[in-house]
Nucleic acid binder design. Structure first.
Lengths: 327, 327
DNA sequence: CTGTTAGCGCGTTCAC
DNA sequence: GTGAACGCGCTAACAG
């Protein structure tokens, strides 16, 4: 900036004014300054600017558990979109489901003075995200609810979606519906199990324990789990799968049998309509999760300092059922 | 920091030293300072720190065209991984293939003093990324080669992959192989077409113009394009598809016909082995593209100022063929 | 071992 | 309209 000032034969202050589009600069001076800026390829240092203005960095942090999962990359896309509209940049961190990584990332983001952050929490507790330990940086949780703290949250309607999909299977005449899910420790898994169960109860049914498998966390695991359910003499006639990975595994098992076992599945996927068994998927807008999280965060950022801290807000992104009859 | 200093009854400098883990501080003072830090929940401001140290922000920019595409989210994941290992954070921007957005993002990232950036270029020229306009911020291109500038680049072996997949079809006895691709303006599309063509030439074949479609850019478009090829009386017995979206569309067309038309396709996808036609996919490690890009960038960052600017480097991520016989 | 001075790049405040 | 002084939060260089 000094160089520009020297070249334009003005003070640094005048350069600052021109770049800030301050009116009180003569047209002639402005032209001189802009010429110098051009010639030197000068760019104002936004970091120093924010420091001087006492502002945070103009960035929002996004901490996800697994960017390779389309759900989270869509979430990131949605958040980026809203952030962009407000002139904010997104700083990305991937925790690989490790709480320790999450802790470090969050610390680092605060030290970098992000305006706020969106976190998909990896662990059982989010105490380290509490205002009294984190300071004034606003936090919004996405995908999983807060535990041990209060915080704005965006969730997917896990219960409702699982309920509707299961109900659909029941309506289609299925009376023995297996459950292939990830470990119940995961919130989404637990909620989706609740939905599966509730749909049964409402129909006066009780799922048999032998039809329930809750240990799989990848495709081969899910395939094996589905096989164990389907190999029984009283095998279920349909399977409810709690996420896209589980579904792919279960489909492999179902397909091998050619038994026509129906599937219901959380998470839509592109080839769902091309499978050779009936598939009912629970679809939802993952981008919207990111957009809503970003909006909640922006609200908090604007609200800052004002008012006696609003109570935490929670929003649930709806799901809808898509039914494919199977080819 | 002043508050901490006051509370610990030392100077700010001492606090700075303790936090920097400078040895020359008495154990007693250190303890006092750390206690004060703890009590106040103080966190050093990394932004001010970097400013004072004359360093960039400790972040690297990543500008992609479409984060919803798994290729780019995997790329981001790979880059994040390497950045993380070096204590750098990733700042993300999505251009939605708009050059204007890319320009703005790049400008902004430079103003934020990123250490460097990885860009998946959206437009036909990357003049705006040239060192003389961007300044000293290092740039690495990913997925598409530089045009109008010199720059380090990471590419996928588009030509080789397309060549190998097509050759495989030919080896399997196919003599009429259709081409369903995106517009040739895209580098990847052009390269993959070259591979398709070269494999034919080497086998003494020449693809018929009527078997070549190069306009599709989404799934329905690809399905329609494939239908047009397959509805001919001299329909090809196999189709080469230039990317995952195209493949999904083409499969829909192929499947409807039950003609047993074989597919070869760039980009692997999870259900490739479950389709009811033979599918040959060109698979590659998208994470690796991001990792290599990050490494190239880190090299440039380290090299900075030293030496008389090394020549641009280029690396090509290999592909491999996976063949599925069709169920 | 610890404190003081000075300044990273910028903008507010108050002069001229 | 324009400039000088001062400070955002931090630390290198030099004192002591």
């Amino acid at each position: 900036m000094r160089d520009v000032a020297a070249r334009a034969q003005v003070s640094a202050m005048t350069v600052s004014r021109v770049l800030k589009e301050d009116e009180r600069v003569s047209t002639a001076t402005r032209a001189k300054v802009l010429a110098a800026v051009e010639e030197l390829g000068y760019r104002r240092n936004e970091v120093a600017r924010n420091l001087r203005l006492g502002r945070p960095s103009g960035m929002i942090g996004l901490v996800v558990t697994n960017l390779a999962n389309p759900f989270y990359s869509r979430l990131a896309l949605g958040a980026e979109q809203v952030a962009e509209e407000h002139g904010l940049r997104l700083v990305l961190g991937n925790t690989a489901e490790q709480v320790q990584r999450e802790r470090e990332l969050v610390e680092d983001l605060v030290s970098r003075r992000v305006d706020g952050m969106i976190v998909v929490p990896a662990g059982a507790s989010q105490r380290h995200l509490a205002p009294d330990v984190l300071g004034p940086t606003p936090v919004v949780l996405a995908g999983r609810p807060p535990a041990g703290i209060e915080a704005d949250t965006v969730l997917v309607d896990d219960f409702g979606g699982a309920h509707a999909a299961t109900a659909r299977l029941i309506a289609d005449g299925h009376r023995s519906i297996g459950f292939v899910g990830n470990p119940p420790a995961l919130f989404t898994g637990a909620e989706r199990f609740r939905g599966y169960w509730a749909a049964h109860e409402e129909a006066g049914l009780t799922p048999r324990e032998e039809w329930i498998s809750r240990g799989a966390y990848d495709i081969p695991g899910a395939e094996a789990a589905a096989h164990r359910l389907l190999d029984r003499t009283d095998a279920p006639t349909a399977l409810f799968c709690t996420n896209n990975r589980i579904t792919l595994g279960a489909y492999r098992a179902v397909r091998g049998l050619r038994s026509g076992t129906a599937l219901a599945a959380f998470d839509d996927f592109e080839m769902a309509d091309l499978l050779d068994v009936p598939v009912t998927v629970v679809a939802y807008d993952a981008d919207e999760v990111g957009r809503r999280a970003a909006r909640l965060l922006l609200d908090r950022i604007d609200e800052k300092s004002a008012a006696p801290r609003q109570p935490p807000r929670r929003t649930v992104v709806p799901t809808h059922i898509v039914h494919h009859t199977g080819a």
